[in-house]
Design a protein around this nucleic acid. Structure first.
Lengths: 190, 190
DNA sequence: TGGACATGTTCATTATAGTAAACTTGTTTC
DNA sequence: GAAACAAGTTTACTATAATGAACATGTCCA
């Protein structure tokens, strides 16, 4: 980005995708509809506070409005169960991990399907600060240990935890278990 | 963040960590040193363009200056299968949706467990631009339609698609199906 | 001690962000 | 087809962001 961000189109797109009129957004944001109109057509150079109010009215992060990068291509990425992805699958100690998410989005979000044989365990080192894991138990039951805390969860349960400390997932039962895991890498500032 | 961002301290910190004087930063950014002084002490409400110029002078991303968020708490949020979350569950046309993710992170990432009775369909309006959906089929098989494209996926399959256009998931079989769905609202960069 | 310089702040002015109200341009309804 | 409404635009004005110049506050060295 080597020119100040032109945020008009962003706001316009978000507003119309939400089917909001200028009047409604004006009410919700506290910014006059005249100003909204001019900002959307880039006739004006809004203050940070104003853009922030608009972001709030749209229920969006401030940065989403300031972002002028092009939209990503409309893709349709398939990762079929049958197709082996050799480098993406590991199997040890009765735990096998299939990486669901495509490689090009590895930075932000990763998704795994983790299968546990009876009496198996997956132990993980601390990740970067701010990283979160989202577990959904698809089959069976597992025990999750995060630092001091631990929880037993069963099929259909959902669990979120911050995993910048040591953590592990254990299948202590005599039945296999399957867990859907999403890892989000929040980029740490400061 | 429920108040407009106070960016003065951010700029001040970055400037002094770089050992730049107001004069030098003024030259590098093209913003008058008087303005810089007032912005750093939050006496004033700068425009986006001005803050952008400063970010450029500091050789920093715009968002780095606007960011005032604290780090998230280290939590351990549980959402058990048995516990009903009445407002968060909808059921119609043979499709029932359970929202897995806690409410406080709804902005960025949402996770659902969607159950399809035989011959049922979930149709969705376009979401915000940049939004992606990540499907993992937990049980049965479904057909996903996104704009022109469509795909048939079965248990264990994983599918990513951009969903800022109309899209739908259909269970055309005589068996029930369950899909794990992650929706990401973050606008994708590059 | 008192220039000489360098840093950040305040002042007076100009440019423009932001507003309310008037205007324009549809679209619906009788 | 005109009245009534609703959505966005333009206008006239006010509030304030942004500027350059003057001012204040050091610190360094003769």
């Amino acid at each position: 980005m080597d020119t100040p961000p032109m945020i008009g189109k962003n706001i316009q797109r978000l507003r119309s995708s939400r089917k909001l009129t200028l009047n409604v957004l004006s009410e919700r944001s506290g910014v006059s509809k005249a100003m909204l109109s001019q900002i959307e057509s880039d006739k004006v150079n809004p203050t940070v506070a104003t853009v922030w109010k608009i972001a709030r009215g749209l229920n969006v992060e401030l940065n989403d409005l300031l972002d002028t990068d092009d939209q990503p291509k409309r893709v349709f990425t398939l990762n079929p169960a049958g197709e082996e992805a050799p480098k993406l699958e590991t199997r040890e100690n009765g735990v096998s991990i299939r990486i669901l998410s495509p490689l090009n989005m590895v930075e932000e979000l990763e998704m795994y399907l983790v299968s546990f044989e009876p009496h198996s365990k997956l132990a993980s080192e601390p990740h970067y600060p701010g990283t979160q894991e989202f577990l959904t138990v698809v089959k069976g039951a597992v025990k999750v240990q995060v630092g001091e805390n631990s929880a037993e969860i069963r099929k259909g349960d959902f669990l979120v935890y911050h995993c910048d400390i040591e953590h592990s997932i254990t299948n202590e039962s005599n039945q296999p278990a399957v867990v859907h895991m999403v890892v989000r890498f929040t980029v740490d500032k400061h």
